[in-house]
């Protein structure tokens, strides 16, 4: 079972990374199983709590079990990218899920969020293979920046219509109410760089390869 999980993951990584290199298109988020996380040195149990996004720099891991809800990622994101503290337009989103997770239900005392089981839900842009945000943009203002390996917004073209927000299944791009421009993750890494518990973390490709190699898996 474990072998298969790891092989599956490696296969996905290989193809997605190859895809990223060759086509210049984005790659979708991959759910990382606990076994794989364990192999990467991220955890030590058989229950999964993390998701990962494959990026040119490495794997961006967001780990629910480590997120403490301090929301410093949102502050650092917007200070870095916007020069102000503005959680609404943060490209990583935690505060909106702080109380009740992604949804307020009648059973909220047993669900995710501080009013329930305390679990936080940090959300990051998935840098989708075929991003809806770019697809619906009437000005084609969202394109892949090959250097960054991220879908980015051309502010001069953006008209702030909010179609990208609506189209994204997770409503991640957000229109800044002040300058009416869409804000979207460019994989700058500031959130992970400043995460106080390592709940958000970019594992560089060299480290990923080394971790697999230590366990006898081939990965280049």
């Amino acid at each position: 079972m474990f072998e298969r999980e790891v092989e599956d993951f490696l296969e996905k990584l290989r193809t997605r990374r190859e895809f990223l290199k060759v086509s210049g298109k984005g790659v979708a988020g991959i759910t990382v199983t606990a076994s794989v996380l364990n192999l990467l040195g991220c955890s030590n149990s058989d229950v999964g709590s993390a998701t990962a996004v494959v990026t040119p720099k490495g794997i961006l891991i967001s780990d629910q079990s480590r997120c403490v809800g301090c929301q410093r990622c949102e502050m650092v994101c917007t200070l870095t990218n916007d020069g102000k503290v503005h959680p609404l337009i943060s490209r990583v989103k935690v505060s909106r899920n702080f109380n009740y997770g992604t949804e307020l239900t009648s059973d909220y005392r047993n669900k995710d969020g501080y009013f329930g089981n305390f679990l936080m839900t940090p959300e990051t842009c998935q840098q989708c293979e075929e991003p809806k945000c770019a697809e619906v943009c009437p000005k084609e203002a969202i394109t892949l920046d090959e250097k960054l390996g991220a879908w980015t917004v051309d502010e001069s073209a953006c008209i702030g219509c909010g179609a990208c927000t609506e189209a994204c299944p997770w409503n991640m791009p957000t229109i800044d109410p002040e300058d009416k421009k869409s804000t979207k993750c460019i994989l700058c890494g500031a959130c992970a760089d400043n995460c106080i518990t390592g709940a958000l973390k970019i594992m560089p490709w060299e480290e990923v390869a080394a971790a697999f190699k230590r366990k006898g898996y081939r990965f280049s």
């Binding site: 606990a34 996380l37 955890s43 149990s45 079990s65 480590r66 403490v68 760089d193 106080i196």
Partner: peptide, 19 residues
Amino acid sequence: AEPPVETGECPQGNPNKVG
């Protein structure tokens, strides 16, 4: 925590372990 999170050594200089 699921999985359990080890607090570990959190030496001065590493901002990702202060929490």
